[in-house]
Simulated assay, not measured.
Amino acid sequence: MAVKLSDTAFDPWQEIANHQQAAGMAGKYGATAVFVGTMRDFNQGDAVCGMYLEHYPGMTETQLQLIVAQAASQWQVLETLVVHRVGRVEPNDTLVLVAVWSEHRGDAFDASRFIMENLKSRAPFWKRETLANGEQRWVDKNSGGYKRQS
């Protein structure tokens, strides 16, 4: 179970391949659920040209590890990988990668969604956007969260 913060751009697909190999996953899983979040060039109706993600070193990683452990206690998870950007980010940069390996797709999907939704609501990250007009603003809420269908 790995959690990484990165202050430089990363390739999510290479991270997945590297982690699978390092964790010795060959032949051990039947499903991998992957979520890749990318920075948009708009938010709340405004053009955005960049963002700075702040975090609390040590506390952020600990909270992410707790979220991953909670998912592993609820679903049959073989391995997980969470990589999150910090620092300066540009539109189209990968912000977050959540990958979950399991024997079966249901556990992989459910654990992946749980990790991502809890990461957005519980992990200590603060986002400061730079708008196209040069104005800077703090993002005070997450947009477009999961809404369960009845």
Score class of each variant (00 low, 15 high):
Ser73Cys: 04
Asp41His: 04
Asp7Met: 08
Met59Glu: 04
Ala2Gln: 13
Ser102Arg: 03
Ala22Cys: 12
Val34Lys: 11
Ala9Cys: 15
Ala2Glu: 15
Lys127Tyr: 04
Ile67Phe: 02
Ala99Asn: 05
Ala123Val: 06
Arg88Thr: 03
Trp101Lys: 01
Asn18Lys: 10
Leu5Thr: 00
Arg148Asn: 00
Met51Ile: 12
Ile67Ser: 05
Gln65Met: 06
Met39Val: 14
Leu95Lys: 02
Ser73Ala: 15
Met39Glu: 12
Ser102Asp: 01
His84Ile: 00
Val48Ala: 02
Ala47Gly: 09
Ser112Asp: 07
Trp138Gln: 09
Ala99Asp: 06
Phe125His: 11
Val36Thr: 13
Gly24Ala: 12
Thr38Cys: 11
Val89Ile: 07
Val68Met: 05
Thr62Lys: 14
Lys141His: 15
Leu5Asn: 01
Glu129Pro: 01
Val82Ser: 04
Asn142His: 12
Trp13Met: 07
Ala26Trp: 02
Met1Asn: 07
Leu95Thr: 08
Val139Arg: 03
His104Val: 11
Val82Phe: 03
Gly50Val: 03
Glu79Gly: 11
Asn92Leu: 09
Leu119Ser: 09
Arg128Lys: 12
Ile115Ser: 08
Ala33Gly: 01
Lys120Asp: 04
Pro91Cys: 15
Thr38Asn: 12
Arg105Val: 08
Glu15Ala: 15
Ala22Ser: 10
Gln149His: 12
Val89Asp: 00
Ala23Leu: 10
Phe42Leu: 04
Asp140Arg: 12
Glu129Tyr: 01
Val82Tyr: 04
Tyr146Arg: 04
Val77Trp: 00
Lys141Phe: 13
Ala111Trp: 00
Asp7His: 09
Trp101Asp: 02
Cys49Trp: 00
Asn118Lys: 06
His104Ile: 07
Ala71Gly: 06
Met25His: 10
Gly58Ile: 07
Tyr146Ile: 03
Asp41Met: 02
Val100Met: 00
Thr94Pro: 12
Ala9Gly: 15
Leu78Ser: 07
Val86Thr: 15
Met51Phe: 11
Phe35Val: 11
Val100Phe: 00
Trp75Ser: 11
Gly30Asp: 03
Ala123Gly: 05
Met51Gly: 13
Gln14Ala: 14
Pro124Phe: 08
Val77Lys: 04
Lys28Asp: 11
Phe109Asp: 05
Gln65Asp: 06
Phe114Cys: 03
Ser102Trp: 01
Ala33Ser: 07
Pro124Met: 09
Lys147Ile: 15
Leu64Cys: 15
Ala132Glu: 05
Gln136Met: 15
Leu53Lys: 00
Ala33Met: 01
Ile115Thr: 07
Trp75Glu: 15
Arg113Ile: 09
Phe42His: 09
Glu61Met: 03
Ala31Cys: 10
Val48Thr: 01
Ala2Asn: 10
Arg137Asp: 03
Leu5Gly: 00
Lys4Pro: 13
Val77Pro: 06
Ala23Pro: 15
Glu61Trp: 02
Val3Leu: 06
Phe109Asn: 06
Trp138Cys: 10
Thr62Cys: 08
Pro12Glu: 00
Gln76Val: 03
Gln136Pro: 11
Leu131Cys: 02
Thr130Val: 10
Lys4Gln: 11
Gly37Gln: 05
His55Leu: 03
Ile115Ala: 07
Tyr29Asn: 09
